[in-house]
């Protein structure tokens, strides 16, 4: 599958999972999808290891778009991207968009075969 993958990162695992459910309802299995949420002890927060794992799960040769909620999710996601092997780094982008709406819009764009840049743009423009 060469559609752009979508990763959902929220401080709350319930929000991340629920947003992923909404994405699946829109696009079925047409888009590689993974979610992660919570700190390493299971409390509210985000963690780099979980984000790296989610990127791996949703990996696509077309790249991966990450949707995040609050600041720490963004900082941890950017850290995770930098820790990827060099050949993958440029193919993962963190989107500046609301996590739920952005994920659904990004996935819908991806399901039509759009490029990573187009997927990111759609997610970001919708609420801009």
């Amino acid at each position: 599958m060469s559609n752009v993958g979508i990763v959902i990162v929220s401080h709350s695992p319930k929000i991340a999972e629920g947003a992923a459910d909404m994405v699946r309802q829109m696009v079925g299995d047409a888009v590689p999808l993974a979610w992660t949420g919570g700190d390493v002890d299971g409390g509210l927060g985000t963690n780099v290891a979980g984000i790296l794992e989610a990127i791996e799960t949703a990996w696509s040769p077309a790249g991966v778009a990450i949707l995040v909620d609050l600041g720490g999710a963004e900082t941890n996601s950017e850290m995770a991207v930098e820790m990827l092997p060099e050949d993958r780094r440029a193919r993962v982008l963190v989107c500046n968009a609301p996590v739920v709406e952005g994920a659904v819009i990004a996935a819908t764009e991806s399901s039509g075969g759009s490029s990573l840049a187009a997927v990111k743009r759609s997610a970001e423009e919708f609420y801009a």
């Binding site: 700190d39 390493v40 927060g45 985000t46 963690n47 780099v48 290891a49 600041g71 720490g72 900082t75 941890n76 950017e78 850290m79």
Partner: peptide, 15 residues
């Protein structure tokens, strides 16, 4: 620290 702290301070202090 990057892997364990979580929150924004993990990447910031870890970096």
């Amino acid at each position: 620290l990057v892997m364990k702290v979580g929150g924004a301070s993990g990447p910031l202090v870890g970096t």
